[in-house]
Design a binder for these strands. Structure first.
Length: 417
RNA sequence: GGGGGAAUGUCCCGAGCGGCAAAGGGGGCGGACUGUAAAUCCGCUGGCUAUGCCUUCGUAGGUUCGAGUCCUACUUCCCCCA
């Protein structure tokens, strides 16, 4: 299947967002028959979703753009269990309160990307806690559980890792795929949802839902997954020294977010532009073709466009400007990430090592000490050579801050107050 | 049901005669070179109020001056027999 005739699948295909489709012809035909409904499920296991999730969210965006109705499903119920897919250990169990907090926090990003409301193609926010938590155990087993074969469940790649690693897979977690399968059927009943999308690691879970619908006498459902994004040198995307690249500004600043994409490898620029931004394909082709150091221009466009989608145009421009001042002019950009320090701590002299820890640039004074030896720390652009040096009010620049740098790229301003 | 084996540095894999903060990789971070890229080379890769102190080898006890290393029980997993 190489040529799609529906707007939706054509766009996804052109942008390299399709990894696998359960029935390409069938889905293509369906998408041409007026407004359809599709969903993506999001775990509530953290206070924010990350760039891995941004891809599926982008698919929902294109789904809506091409005249359909997207559903974002919050895993209020499934997060009580935890998805064991491709994990080598059990997740820690979340409390009901943690899940509720996470959902509230996660929701904020969705409304930037999708248009919610009551219109025919307005997005719907659903929560599987609404039906999963009410289920009666035995009734559920008889109605749904009987359609699942344990033999088959054990054959899924998603649990292989766990089994091969000789780690226990609890019955609790084993139920996850059943719940997710049931979600699909339930969303079909409630909203006529016919398609579930997700990352390629969700294929098994989604297919279970497609299967379950069959067995329960429901309509034909479809599954579409995106490729797992890796960088050209093979690393998984979205990991930094400090953890994942989150979409919520309070856990991962727009500036850091912009920087993350600014540092994209040359070989990835074209692909990332297609996957993450909404720029026209001919414009992307032009940018990706830039050679040598000119490709840096394309990286800036990439960074600004994605940041604008997630954090808004204004925040994106600000991040770009801060970066320009810092890296291209070598000037002090006053809106670099800033950490406030009580005046009382600086006045008597604050140890350089603990200053870097306070700024969040290094995790411990031990690490700071090592970095001094390696020449990786700088105060106001001067390399720190003495680990016992003290920072005082005399180190404040004319802007009243101290600029701390870790490596060439990470900068934080310390502001006494 | 019986017998044998495994679990190591809270990223992963993996050595480890009773003196061990524990070999070696991978990954990650920093430096050099560059273009805030890749590749390459070099260094680092438990914590701290630091010539010392504290916490780490599945969990809990025990033997010992001293235990990752020996003993006992437990947990999880693998293999063989039934």
């Amino acid at each position: 299947m190489t040529t799609y005739t529906s707007d939706f699948l054509r766009v996804l295909d052109e942008r390299g967002l399709i990894h696998q489709v359960s029935d390409p012809e069938g889905l293509d035909a369906l998408c041409r028959q007026g407004t359809q409904t599709a969903y993506v499920g999001y775990d509530a296991t953290a206070t924010s979703i990350h760039i891995g999730n941004l891809i599926s969210l982008t698919m929902l965006y294109w789904f809506q753009e091409t005249g359909h109705r997207p559903i974002t499903l919050m895993g209020g119920g499934t997060s009580m269990v935890g998805d064991p897919s491709f994990r080598d250990d059990q997740r820690k169990l979340l409390t009901v309160e943690e899940i509720a907090t996470n959902i509230e926090s996660i929701k904020r990003v969705f409304s930037r990307i999708l248009r919610y409301g009551d219109g025919p193609t307005d997005a719907i926010m659903a929560n599987n806690a609404d039906w999963l938590l009410k289920l009666n155990y035995v009734a559920f087993l008889r109605e749904v559980g009987r359609h699942f074969s344990v033999n088959r469940m054990l054959s899924f790649d998603s649990v292989k890792l766990r089994l091969d690693r000789e780690q226990s897979l609890s019955f609790l977690e084993f139920n996850y795929m059943i719940m997710q399968g049931y979600d699909f059927v339930e969303l079909n009943r409630r909203y006529g949802c016919r398609l579930q999308m997700g990352g390629s690691d969700q294929w098994g879970n989604i297919i279970n839902g497609v299967d379950l619908s069959h067995r329960m006498g429901g309509p034909q459902l479809y599954c579409l997954t995106t490729p797992l994004l890796t960088t050209a040198s093979g690393a998984k995307m979205g990991k930094t020294a400090n953890g994942a690249v989150w979409l919520n500004a309070d856990v991962f600043s727009p500036y850091d977010f912009w920087q993350y994409f600014r540092n994209t490898e040359d070989a990835d620029v074209g692909r990332f532009l297609k996957v993450f931004t909404r720029l026209p394909l001919d414009e992307i082709a032009r940018l990706a073709a830039l050679g040598g150091s000119e490709i840096n221009e394309a990286k800036k466009v990439l960074a600004t466009e994605i940041t604008a989608i997630v954090h808004g145009r204004e925040a994106a421009e600000a991040a770009a400007e801060t970066a320009r001042k810092t890296f291209e002019e070598g000037a002090l950009a006053t809106d670099l990430p800033t950490v406030a320090v009580p005046r009382g701590e600086i006045e008597p002299g604050l140890g350089v090592l603990s200053a870097f820890v306070k700024a969040g640039l290094v995790p411990s004074t031990g690490e700071a000490r090592r970095q001094v030896k390696a020449g990786g720390l700088r105060v106001n652009d001067a390399v720190v050579t003495d680990e016992r040096a003290l920072l005082g009010l005399g180190d404040l620049t004319s802007d009243g801050v101290v600029k701390l740098s870790f490596g060439k790229k990470k900068h934080v301003l310390l502001r006494p107050e």
